[in-house]
Lab assay of single mutants.
Amino acid sequence: EFILQPIHNLLMGDTKEQRILNHVLQHAEPGNAQSVLEAIDTYCEQKEWAMNVGDKKGKIVDAVIQEHQPSVLLELGAYCGYSAVRMARLLSPGARLITIEINPDCAAITQRMVDFAGV
């Protein structure tokens, strides 16, 4: 995967993360976080594997957030924003999600994903 990915990106003209974002923009409903998550899950199941938590493990994350109702949540590494959208949609009003992503391209994609999801 890591050796072939740059070749695939070159042939496709963009990165996997950008392709995931484009899929979301084309297939998800703006302002609907659940729709965004479903679009990412569908893309990763049908098109390309991606390094995200996914729906199965995501339900565990959901349960922890719902049980503890944090007022501040810190995410280290956002990748394409799946977990940020997943967690933010469950936060109480006034709660904050702080996401740190070292890769500026992934940070920009995450910001667009979060904005599109409306969270």
Rank of each mutant, 00 (worst) to 15 (best):
Q111L: 03
M12T: 03
E17D: 02
Q26E: 11
Q26K: 11
I7S: 07
A107G: 09
I109V: 11
D115G: 11
P104S: 14
G118D: 11
P6L: 11
Q34H: 09
C106S: 09
E29G: 03
D105Y: 12
L21R: 00
L10M: 08
E17G: 05
I100V: 05
S35T: 14
E1K: 14
G13S: 13
I109T: 11
A117D: 08
I109F: 13
D115E: 07
M113T: 01
T15I: 02
Q34P: 15
I98F: 12
E101D: 06
A28S: 13
P104A: 03
I109M: 11
Q34K: 04
F2V: 04
R112Q: 13
A107D: 12
A107S: 10
I100M: 10
L97V: 15
N9K: 08
D105G: 10
L4P: 02
N22Y: 00
P30L: 03
E101G: 14
A117V: 15
E17K: 01
G31A: 03
N9Y: 02
P6T: 12
I109N: 07
A117P: 07
T110S: 09
V114L: 14
L10Q: 01
E29V: 14
D115A: 08
N9H: 00
A107V: 13
K16R: 05
F116V: 04
H8N: 07
Q5K: 11
M12L: 08
I20N: 05
H8L: 13
L4Q: 00
L4M: 07
N9I: 04
E1G: 05
N32T: 00
G31E: 04
I7F: 01
L25Q: 01
R19L: 11
E29K: 15
I98L: 07
T15A: 03
H27Q: 12
E1V: 07
L25P: 00
A108D: 12
V119A: 10
R112G: 05
V24M: 02
R19S: 13
V24E: 02
V114G: 14
I3V: 09
R112L: 07
H27D: 14
L25V: 01
D14Y: 09
Q18H: 01
I3L: 08
A28V: 09
M12V: 05
D14H: 09
E17Q: 09
M12I: 06
E17A: 03
H23P: 02
G13C: 07
L10P: 00
P30A: 07
Q5L: 04
I98N: 05
E1D: 06
E17V: 06
N32D: 12
I102N: 09
G31R: 14
T110N: 09
A107P: 14
Q18R: 01
I20M: 01
I102F: 15
V24G: 02
D105H: 13
L97Q: 07
I7V: 00
I98V: 10
V24L: 05
I3S: 07
G31W: 08
I7M: 06
T110P: 04
Q111H: 05
P104L: 13
V119M: 11
H23L: 01
N32H: 15
N103S: 10
A117G: 13
I100T: 09
D105A: 05
I100F: 07
D105N: 14
K16M: 03
M113R: 08
H8D: 14
I102T: 08
A108S: 11
D14V: 15
I102S: 06
H23Q: 05
T15S: 08
M12K: 11
K16E: 00
L25M: 01
G31V: 14
D105E: 10
I20L: 04
A28E: 15
H23R: 02
L11P: 08
N32S: 00
R19P: 15
D14G: 07
R19G: 11
Q5R: 00
P30H: 13
R19H: 12
H8R: 04
V119E: 12
V114A: 06
I3M: 01
N22K: 06
I3F: 02
I3T: 02
S35N: 02
N22D: 04
Q34L: 14
Q111K: 11
I100N: 10
L11R: 04
Q34E: 04
L11H: 04
G13D: 13
G13V: 08
E1Q: 05
N103H: 03
G13A: 06
I98M: 15
R19C: 08
E29A: 01
R112P: 03
C106F: 09
P6S: 10
H27Y: 14
F2C: 03
T110A: 04
T99A: 07
Q18P: 10
V114M: 11
Q5H: 02
I109L: 11
H23N: 03
T99I: 14
Q34R: 15
N9D: 01
L11F: 01
I102M: 01
L11V: 13
I98T: 07
I102V: 04
A117S: 08
N103K: 14
A117T: 10
E1A: 00
H8Y: 04
K16T: 06
A107T: 03
P6A: 15
A108V: 10
C106G: 13
E29D: 13
L25R: 00
L21Q: 08
N32Y: 11
A28G: 12
N9T: 01
F116Y: 12
I7T: 05
Q111P: 04
N103I: 06
Q111R: 05
I100L: 02
V119G: 15
I7N: 02
T99S: 09
Q5E: 06
L97P: 08
C106Y: 01
F116S: 15
N9S: 04
F2L: 04
I102L: 10
N22I: 02
R112W: 10
A108T: 09
L4V: 05
S35I: 12
G118V: 12
I100S: 10
T110I: 06
T99N: 15
F2S: 03
N22T: 01
L97M: 14
T15P: 01
I7L: 05
M12R: 09
M113L: 08
E101K: 12
L11I: 12
D115V: 06
A33G: 06
S35R: 15
T15N: 10
I3N: 04
G118C: 10
L97R: 06
M113I: 08
A28P: 14
P6H: 07
P30R: 06
L10R: 00
F116C: 09
Q111E: 11
M113V: 05
F2Y: 04
C106R: 10
I109S: 06
Q18L: 04
P104T: 13
L21P: 00
H27R: 11
D115H: 09
P30T: 15
A33S: 07
E101Q: 05
N32K: 09
H27N: 06
G118A: 12
N32I: 13
G118R: 12
K16N: 02
Q18K: 02
Q18E: 08
G118S: 12
A108P: 08
N22S: 00
P6R: 03
H8Q: 13
H8P: 02
P104H: 14
H23Y: 06
Q26H: 06
L21M: 10
A33P: 15
E29Q: 12
V119L: 11
F116L: 15
N103D: 03
Q26L: 05
A33T: 03
T99P: 10
P104R: 09
D14E: 07
G13R: 12
I20S: 01
D115N: 14
E101A: 13
E101V: 15
D14A: 06
D14N: 03
I20F: 03
H27P: 15
C106W: 02
F116I: 07
S35C: 10
L10V: 09
A33V: 11
A108G: 10
A33E: 00
Q26R: 00
M113K: 05
A28T: 02
V24A: 00
Q26P: 07
N103T: 12
H23D: 00
H27L: 15
F2I: 03
Q5P: 00
P30S: 08
D115Y: 14
N103Y: 03
I20T: 00
L21V: 08
D105V: 13
S35G: 12
L4R: 02
V114E: 13
